[in-house]
Simulated scan of single mutants.
Amino acid sequence: MLVRQNDWDDLRNEFSAVLFRLSYRTNQEYRSGYRGPDDEYEGDDEQRIIRSMRGWWEIDGSDVQALADPAALGVQYAVAFHQGRTRAVVQIDGWHWVAGLEGDAHHLLSVDDFLHGSQAGGCESGPLEDERWRNQERVRWAFDASPAPDRVHQAWVNEGGTEVSGMRRDTIVSVWPYSLADDQRDLVDRALRIFGEVLQARLVREFGPRDLDWLRQSLRDGAGSAEARRELGEHPERSLDPELWLKLVSKDENWHRVRDCFPSFRQPSFFRQLLRMRHRWAHFAYREQVREREIDNLRRITGLLNDIGSQRAASNVGFIRRVLETHVQRREADEAA
């Protein structure tokens, strides 16, 4: 069984979000931080968490721009989590920055008070579109918010909150389902694993009932060595290894059997291209950087997944592509500078 940072078919993946890890605050003067249900405060618990979550966070301005840009990540929601469980979710209605906060001022400053004119002296501020933040050494970000739709709240918080993977607890700010901090090799690998699982499910559904012996033998033939074939065991069709399934559909002698599963493709050349990409990134990623060829392959995978009715998988591969495109844009901007 594959070990994933989060399952690609998790319902939350439909509603990508920026995650804020809240520390537990005992200082009564601080606005920010998570406080437990036993603390004495007026008002609704979740609203207090939301006010704490909304600002001010020290984030790279280019990352905020990528979060807000529909052509980049297009993240619409923000989620607060504490001790590995989600506590609140809101819809993001606009990012704002402030520069010049000193010491613990960011803990004390209410986003609403700040935006409505009660501003700390000596600060510069503005919305995301006011790009004076690019000229500041240190900028903190907050956002306007409105209630998340019921479907979003149910997916993210539900009753008692949903679990957030331990890998997400290492940073204060992260992105779900795939983050700008994620390794490029890992992202390419995840996209191919998602695709491999869909291939496995589709081909087993098609050939399992009527031609299982052929399917098993073809998978064993693609395994290569005798040891690899033994590791597949009696049920190679249960394997989720994308390499195995890409080998099966890439072979000319198999294509006449499987092509009806992929109505948009007349030849297996695209699957061979994906197999080469998988080999390159599995074995030589130490000298690779994502470029347009990988972006284009992921775009075509997304189209194929949509064509065969795997919209949730397509959505996740599409988000990985957008993350990697943002990596490419940042690298190109750095090279130009």
Rank of each mutant, 00 (worst) to 15 (best):
R168M: 03
T171W: 14
S118L: 15
V157W: 14
L180N: 13
G126T: 12
S125N: 12
G122C: 10
R193K: 14
G100M: 04
S125L: 11
R134K: 12
V98I: 06
R132K: 07
D213Q: 09
P177K: 05
W97S: 13
E197A: 15
L128R: 02
H107E: 10
S146N: 12
A148N: 04
L101S: 08
D213K: 07
L212N: 10
E131K: 10
N135D: 14
E197F: 15
G161F: 05
R169Y: 06
L109K: 04
D130R: 13
S125D: 00
D104F: 07
A148G: 10
P149L: 11
D112Y: 15
E129V: 00
F207G: 07
I172F: 05
S110P: 08
D150G: 01
E131T: 11
P147R: 00
V157T: 03
V111K: 05
G160A: 02
V98N: 05
G160R: 01
D211N: 07
A155E: 05
H106Y: 11
D213L: 14
G103I: 03
S118H: 13
G196I: 12
S174M: 02
E137A: 14
D170S: 06
A148V: 12
D130Q: 08
D211A: 09
I194E: 00
G208A: 09
Q154N: 14
V175N: 02
V204E: 12
W214E: 00
S118I: 13
L219T: 14
L203E: 01
E206W: 02
S179P: 04
A201H: 11
V198L: 11
S146R: 00
N158S: 03
D112E: 12
V139T: 01
W95I: 14
N158F: 08
A120C: 10
Q154P: 04
P177W: 13
E129C: 07
V188H: 01
L219H: 02
E124K: 13
S179L: 06
L180Y: 07
V111L: 12
A145G: 09
L128Q: 06
W95E: 02
R202I: 01
A105W: 03
D113R: 11
Q136L: 15
D182N: 05
H153G: 06
G103N: 10
G103E: 04
L180W: 10
A120I: 14
Q184A: 14
Q217C: 02
Q217L: 11
A105E: 05
A105Q: 12
A99W: 00
S125R: 01
M167L: 12
E102W: 01
Q217P: 00
Q136H: 13
D113C: 08
W133Q: 01
D213A: 05
E159C: 07
P149M: 10
N135C: 15
E129F: 11
R151A: 15
P127T: 05
L115K: 09
V157G: 03
A181N: 09
V139H: 03
V173M: 10
R190L: 04
F195L: 08
I172R: 06
Q184S: 15
R205S: 08
W133N: 00
L199F: 08
L101M: 06
S146V: 12
D104R: 04
A120T: 08
A155W: 12
V198D: 10
G117L: 06
D183H: 14
I194R: 15
R138L: 13
F114D: 06
L187Y: 06
S125C: 08
A105I: 03
E137W: 01
A148D: 12
V139S: 01
